[in-house]
C-alpha cells in the first residue's frame, strides 16, 4: 500500500519529466533515425544518413572546437569563481555579496549579450577609452572571434560556478588552513593541499554547471562570435532553420547529449582514490605494523 502512495506522490514529477524531458528526447532520437523531408520535417522511413553525415570534417571540426571552447571557458570560470567564492565565504557580509552575484540575472540574457557588444564593438565603450587615451587611432576589433566568445561565456556562467563553490567553502573549517600553516605549509601550499581537496565536490558541481550549458551554447557564439567560433549549437540551429535537415540536427543534438551525460557519469562514478591501497601494497609498511594489530 505504502509503495503505491509513494508513486502517487511522485506522479506530478513523473508527468513533468515525461512531457518535458522524455518525450522531446524520444522525438529527437526517432527523428535522428529518419530520412529528411524535402522542405524540413521528416519522411517516415528508417535511415542512418544523419549519423553517417556526422563524419563530415566540418562537423568534426566544430565538435572539436566546441569541446575546446567549453574546456577553456570552464577552466577560466572556475579560476575566477574560486577566489570569489572563497572571499564571499570568509566575508562578514555574505548576504550582500551573494546579492551582487545574483543581480545580473535580473537582466535578460540577450540584453546582457548586447551590452557586451556595446562594450567591445568597434564604436564601443572600450574603443572610445582607447582612443581617448590615444593608445589607438583605428578601432580595435574585439568582437567576432573566439576570445570574445570565451570572455562573454565566462561572464555569463560565472554566477553558476560561484554559488556552488561558495556553499562548499562556507562549510569548510578554516582552522584547517591555520593548522596547515602551523605545520609548515606556505599560504599557497595550504590552499592547494588542504582547501582544494576538501572542496572537491563544490569544484565538480561548479564545473558541471558551467561546462554543460557552455557546450550547448548558441546565442553567445551567434552574436559575439565569428567564423572561428561557430559551435555545435549554431550548427543545430542552422540545420533546423536554414538547411532544413531535421534528422541531422537531431543526430548532432544526440551527440551533444551523449557527450555531456557521459561526462557527468564519468565524474559521478569516479571512485575516490584511497591512500589505503598504497600502503596495503607496501611491504615495508606492513612489516612495521605487527600483523595482529592491522
Amino acid at each position: 500500500m505504502k509503495k503505491q502512495v509513494g508513486l502517487l506522490y511522485s506522479l506530478p514529477q513523473i508527468l513533468w519529466l515525461l512531457v518535458f524531458f522524455a518525450a522531446p528526447l524520444c522525438i529527437i532520437i526517432v527523428y535522428s533515425f529518419l530520412k529528411k523531408g524535402l522542405y524540413g520535417g521528416v519522411e517516415p522511413q528508417f535511415s542512418l544518413e544523419a549519423y553517417t553525415a556526422l563524419a563530415n570534417p566540418n562537423i568534426l571540426l566544430v565538435t572539436w572546437r566546441t569541446l575546446k571552447i567549453s574546456i577553456i571557458a570552464t577552466a577560466l570560470t572556475l579560476l575566477i569563481a574560486l577566489p570569489c567564492g572563497y572571499s564571499i565565504a570568509r566575508s562578514k557580509n555574505q548576504a550582500a555579496r551573494l546579492f551582487l552575484v545574483i543581480v545580473p540575472f535580473w537582466t535578460n540574457f540577450l540584453v546582457r549579450i548586447y551590452a557586451w557588444i556595446a562594450i567591445l564593438g568597434n564604436e564601443g565603450f572600450l574603443n572610445d577609452i582607447l582612443r581617448a587615451l590615444h593608445l589607438t587611432t583605428e578601432s580595435v576589433q574585439f568582437l567576432y572571434n573566439q576570445t570574445a566568445v570565451i570572455l562573454v561565456l565566462v561572464y555569463m556562467y560565472l554566477p553558476y560556478a560561484i554559488l556552488p563553490l561558495f556553499s562548499t567553502i562556507d562549510k569548510f573549517d578554516f582552522t584547517l588552513l591555520d593548522a596547515a600553516r602551523d605545520l609548515g605549509a606556505s599560504r599557497f601550499q595550504s590552499y592547494v593541499r588542504v582547501l582544494l581537496p576538501n572542496i572537491k565536490s563544490g569544484l565538480m558541481t561548479a564545473g558541471l554547471f558551467t561546462f554543460v550549458p557552455i557546450f550547448g551554447a548558441y546565442a553567445v557564439p551567434l552574436l559575439i562570435g565569428g567564423k572561428d567560433s561557430y559551435m555545435l549549437g549554431n550548427i543545430i540551429a542552422d540545420q533546423l532553420t536554414k538547411t532544413r535537415n531535421w534528422p541531422l540536427a537531431s543526430s548532432i543534438s544526440m551527440t551533444v547529449t551523449i557527450l555531456t551525460t557521459g561526462l557527468v557519469f564519468l565524474i559521478a562514478m569516479r571512485k575516490p582514490r584511497e591512500q589505503k591501497q598504497v600502503f596495503d601494497a607496501d611491504p615495508a609498511f606492513l612489516q612495521a605494523v605487527p600483523a595482529g594489530k592491522r
Partner: peptide, 8 residues
C-alpha cells in the same frame, strides 16, 4: 588545536 583540525 582545540578542535584538533585534522585534515579530513
Amino acid at each position: 588545536f582545540q578542535s584538533y583540525a585534522l585534515f579530513p
